[in-house]
Design a protein around this nucleic acid. Structure first.
Lengths: 165, 165
DNA sequence: CGCTTCTTTCAGAAATGTGTGAAGTTAAGG
DNA sequence: CCTTAACTTCACACATTTCTGAAAGAAGCG
């Protein structure tokens, strides 16, 4: 008749459960729902890449929703868009080795915080308790920026080593 | 007439601008609006602590909103509640030296991720690309957990040194 | 022990966010 | 060129979240 129904169904359901749980985690961390679901689906896919239609069907959402979510994901560098040559069909791919960086979105993120804090320090001045308190925060973010840089380097080294061994 | 209008007004307006900018930053990082505004207001206050009424007036929100937001902030250890002895008035205080930890809310956060990822690895198995991909993610979070621990220690040392010198 | 002051709870209103359907745009293939 | 398959945009509807006002609940003070 049709394909091995139960197996495929079970597998699909199991995948879906994981995808939704993963997505929920991302949502909790601040990502909006649709991007989260799509990212989770991509990471759980065999090739690490899916087409718009596949995502639309698997997640049971409209192409419009996929479009919007993917735009966001591409913008924050969690996903890259590929064109299969000869077709207008696009595939969206998780950046296997880059998404760790993106997830910690250090660059813009930490800079923005530092800017805000610097303004606060200027406004209140270091001769006020508030000013000193905000200055501490500024220093914390400076510290974080430096440390996260070297942290990611260590991670890269760690990974390279694993692959090598 | 009344108090030095322009000075107080300007100062208040300037503080408000900073508070709202800071809050916006926190919102972007995933915190909801009211807790974010309250936290920012506390950090910008001279004593690092304000009463419910003060918050309510400064932020132009109802006592109910303050109550709910403060409950959340206390739960995630960003704020502590104090009672002024003899009054039912409560003051809410930012935890000057603890909120860095809280902001990175490492403990529960990283554990939850690891649990989710572990389930994914089990589900797909290390003989599938997805399984390996998710396992990489799991390792990344293990790595992060370890590193963030020592990072915060270094920060504590850094701070202690500043205060000492 | 009741009055008063402050905080909390709760139902509902207002604001915001999120996803859909339909129309619009772009580019491959005839 | 025209057709057609894909992706995107936009207005709107639905869902969720967030804040308020009112009422109830605690706790000092007379």
């Amino acid at each position: 008749m049709d394909e091995r129904r139960t197996d495929d169904g079970d597998e699909a359901a199991a995948v879906s459960r994981f995808v939704e749980r993963f997505a929920a985690q991302l949502v909790q961390a601040g990502m909006s729902r649709m991007p989260a679901r799509i990212f989770a689906a991509l990471l759980s896919s065999e090739q690490g890449a899916l087409t718009s239609v596949e995502l639309s069907e698997q997640l049971k959402v409209s192409p419009a929703a996929v479009s919007g979510a993917v735009r966001y994901l591409a913008q924050v560098n969690l996903v890259s868009r590929e064109r299969e040559p000869g077709s207008r069909r696009e595939r969206y791919r998780v950046q296997d080795d880059q998404w760790y960086d993106a997830l910690l979105e250090r660059d813009a993120f930490l800079r923005n915080w530092q800017t805000t804090m610097r303004e606060g320090v200027e406004q209140f001045g270091l001769d006020t308790p508030q000013g000193r308190r905000i200055n501490d925060t500024l220093e914390f973010f400076r510290f974080l920026e430096k440390e996260l840089g070297s942290l990611m380097q260590r991670w890269a080294a760690h990974r390279a080593e694993q692959l090598g061994g």
